[in-house]
Amino acid sequence: MIWANAIQTLRDNLKTIKTILYALMALTIAVDFLIPRHEPHFFGDKIPGFWSVFGFVGCLLLIKVMKGLAHTILGQREDYYG
């Protein structure tokens, strides 16, 4: 029950958690300007905040493209194979 209550408390404070997460996002990008970069292997390694954009755009693209495919050719009724 303790665990269920703990999770419930987190759920009840969703606003606070969201604020913390937004702050964390800003912080990581800010820190990314400061950290040293040894031997980058890829042009994105040199651009501060590149991986934030990469993660965000990658996530949106993945959902959009795959949901599009699922709604056109890949998705079938559950009894498709009989």
């Binding site: 997460l21 964390l24 996002m25 990581t28 990008i29 820190v31 990314d32 950290i35 390694d45 905040g49 991986w51 934030s52 954009v53 990469f54 993660g55 965000f56 990658g58 996530c59 949106l60 959902i63 959009k64 949901k67 699922a70 050719i73 890949l74 998705g75 079938q76 009724r77 559950e78 498709y80 194979y81």
Partner: peptide, 30 residues
């Protein structure tokens, strides 16, 4: 460390923005 945290946090952001689109459907995929 920085690269990983950025990717994870912003993937999370993308997820919650498109949460409705991801609602599971009772279907199978070829």
């Amino acid at each position: 460390f920085s690269e990983t945290v950025q990717i994870l946090l912003f993937t999370g952001l993308g997820f919650f923005l498109l949460l409705k689109k991801l609602t599971p459907e009772a279907k199978i995929n070829l």
